[in-house]
Design a protein around this nucleic acid. Structure first.
Lengths: 201, 201
DNA sequence: TCCTCCACTTTACATAGTGTAAAGTGGAGT
DNA sequence: ACTCCACTTTACACTATGTAAAGTGGAGGA
């Protein structure tokens, strides 16, 4: 692809991102996206096969802009699995607001557009693998609470750290982000971290 | 409304429910819903103002069919707040599969259709009030874990008992419903139920 | 029995969006 | 000067929602 085409590609994605997140998937037509990017509607079809394709590409573009790895670095550098977990909650709370609009849009379209379903599954699987690593480490350090196994604890934590928990508590219930972080940590500690052996007396 | 019209109304709702849940909101047109109900497309507009209206009416119709109160009765008849909570988890796990399709459809449309947004908020508020009552009782019995207040504990439990937790764990991760119930109870006990005072020795 | 009402049909139309097709344009690179 | 190609322009096919209005047929009341 020529430099020019790549540049146009990016312009479409940025117009699409802004308009789609402002007004929702059905709230904007490709006509308007194209106009916003300074192009004809047909030009958009030279870059993306369909509106659904554009949505998915937009979400992936956003992901690349957000730089998830940066946020996750402290997690991997933690001194133990419990600290990693606490840091993961913080990272999660920092990333979620940035990707919320796009993620929810993908989620809402996943029932109708196979491309959106794939994008959603990819994202979920990525997250679940990260959680699985964390829980595996927790278990290896003997800090996974009794009564849990790695698989089920991972599933549960993955579900707890989903975009919907953020939506319910922060967006709907207006929790300040610090409360959100503290409460999630509190729950995770209580529910899946082993209580420390009695201090020797 | 005449008996005949009410009957037709119901027929439309049942056709709509089946087709919409089978193929999704955008997967069926009113043409097809009407045909399925043995009517012309225009007849549907004599009963519902728009497709969005029909969706909302369908979800409400389903709610009325499900009989949520029946499921919740054991919760209100529990001997204490902790037992009520355990029973609430069971009721929740019984109701969720029945309303899942319709609820998710309403959820997915809520960004586009104010009617769907209202229906969603109503449902959420109903649930949140129920949870709030439960947590208030828990606190009154001195069984709310330290570090929680009623408001925040309610928000958290409400979010944990959302349709999305069911979606993630049962639908996506294929948890058997019993495991789902057990794990949720386990988490709730660990996270928000007070540890009993040390038995006298 | 006749009349009226009304739920529903039929036909038609306006509007809006997605996606396809194909000829034309203008500028950048060789 | 020639070519390529990204993009424009115009046009069309298709599908859906929603509106409008005249017509039909049967049930219920006078």
């Amino acid at each position: 692809m020529s430099t020019k085409k790549i540049e146009t590609h990016r312009k479409i994605l940025e117009s699409a991102f802004r308009l789609l997140t402002e007004r929702g998937y059905h709230g904007v037509g490709l006509e308007e996206v194209a106009r916003d990017a300074g192009l004809s509607r047909q030009a958009v079809y030279l870059h993306f096969n369909s509106k659904a394709d554009l949505l998915v590409a937009t979400a992936q573009y956003l992901d690349s802009q957000v730089g998830t790895e940066e946020f996750l670095r402290p997690v991997f550098e933690a001194k133990d699995a419990v600290q990693a977990m606490d840091r993961a909650v913080e990272a999660y709370a920092a990333i979620e607001p940035l990707i919320y609009d796009a993620a929810i849009m993908i989620y809402a379209q996943r029932g109708f557009e196979p491309a959106a379903e794939n994008a959603w599954q990819d994202r979920m699987e990525f997250r679940r693998q990260n959680v699985l690593r964390g829980i595996t480490a927790l278990e290896a350090e003997g800090m996974l609470a009794q009564g849990w196994n790695i698989e089920e604890a991972s599933d549960f934590v993955w579900s707890l750290l989903s975009i919907h928990t953020y939506e319910y508590l922060v967006r709907e219930r207006k929790w300040p982000i610090d409360r959100f972080i503290d409460r999630l940590r509190q729950v995770l500690h209580a529910a899946i971290v082993a209580t420390p052996p009695k201090p020797a007396d």
